[in-house]
Amino acid sequence: MDIVGNGFLARNLRALSSRHPDTVVLAAGVSWAQGTARADFDREERLLGEVVADCRASGRRLLFFSSASTGVYGKVRGPGREDGPVTPCTPYGAHKIALEERLRASGADHLILRLGHLVGRDQPPHQLLPLLVRQMRAGSVRVHRGAVRDLVHVDDVVEIIDRLLGQGLRAETVNVASGEAVPVEHIVDHLEARLGLSVRREYQDVDAHHIISTEKLRALVPEVTRMGFGPAYFRRVLDSFVDHQLATAPTGVPAPEET
């Protein structure tokens, strides 16, 4: 595969670079769900147009990463499904859905994956877990009461992508997530215990609860069963993240005590 981009997901996908030569992966663009900069959205839209044109000319399939975030599924009643209507409730969600529609209308072979909240080594500092850890180490953390995140480890996502591409899927949209809506408060609880911290919490009320349907994913990739997706999965994902944080703490700076 050819990978367009050099960010967090793109770097992890390099393990598949010798596979799926019929596919171009667009792993670049806006990666911050709180982002609202029109210039960033326009830049991703132009890049998509360029890659779509190349794929049409070469007859290759385009793998496009969309979002299963609150911005996309936050107003859906019940689990967010790929085949149901969505009403984006953030500029980021509206942007991603608009790009999906443009890709479907382009005539290019494609596969759209709506991703949950990816977690892994060396994440960008603006993403949820690095941001939470920085806030917690500073002594306080801002928690949106009612907010949830579907956490999925990037290693599992890479394996799922490999299996989906191997099936030769075309013109499909698939949620890639664990299917568990984890309250952000529970994420903070687990990080606090693992890092040995006691932090002050500043609460803000939001109405942002949503669940991502994984029915289609499980039918296409039954191997996700052995990945342990379920109520306890997020703890394993967080443990992996914290273990890497502790192992890479700067020399001479004591790592936080574990409990």
Rank of each mutant, 00 (worst) to 15 (best):
W32C: 10
L128E: 10
P88A: 00
V184Y: 08
P125D: 15
M227K: 09
E223T: 10
L131K: 15
V174F: 08
G168Q: 03
V72T: 04
G116D: 06
V76G: 05
R163P: 01
L118T: 06
A98I: 05
S213D: 12
G166I: 04
R77M: 11
L129E: 06
D239C: 05
L165C: 00
D42T: 04
L115W: 09
R218D: 12
R102H: 08
E202V: 14
L191F: 05
Q34V: 09
R137K: 13
R194E: 14
H186M: 15
V119P: 00
V141K: 01
S58C: 03
T70I: 11
K75E: 14
A177K: 07
V141D: 03
R77S: 15
R145L: 11
A68S: 11
V237Q: 02
R46C: 01
T70S: 10
R121A: 15
R11N: 10
P88D: 03
G71P: 04
P21D: 07
V30M: 02
L16F: 08
E215T: 13
I161V: 15
V25A: 02
R114W: 12
T248E: 04
D42M: 03
V188K: 01
E257G: 14
L9K: 06
R235C: 05
G179Y: 12
A15Q: 11
F229M: 10
T173S: 08
V182W: 09
S69Q: 05
K75D: 15
A39Y: 00
Q34R: 12
F234G: 00
T23E: 04
R11Q: 12
S66I: 06
L131D: 15
A15E: 12
E44W: 01
Q245S: 11
R11Y: 02
G107P: 00
I187W: 08
E82K: 10
A37I: 05
D162P: 13
E101P: 12
Y233P: 01
V52F: 09
A15N: 03
P21M: 05
Q167L: 11
D40I: 01
G29H: 01
K75N: 13
P88Q: 02
G5W: 00
G78R: 03
V24G: 02
R43Y: 00
A39F: 01
I161F: 07
H210P: 00
D109S: 14
T225S: 15
D2L: 13
P256N: 05
A33P: 11
E258H: 11
E172I: 00
S178E: 04
S213M: 04
H186T: 14
E100V: 04
F64Q: 03
A171S: 14
L48A: 08
L129W: 08
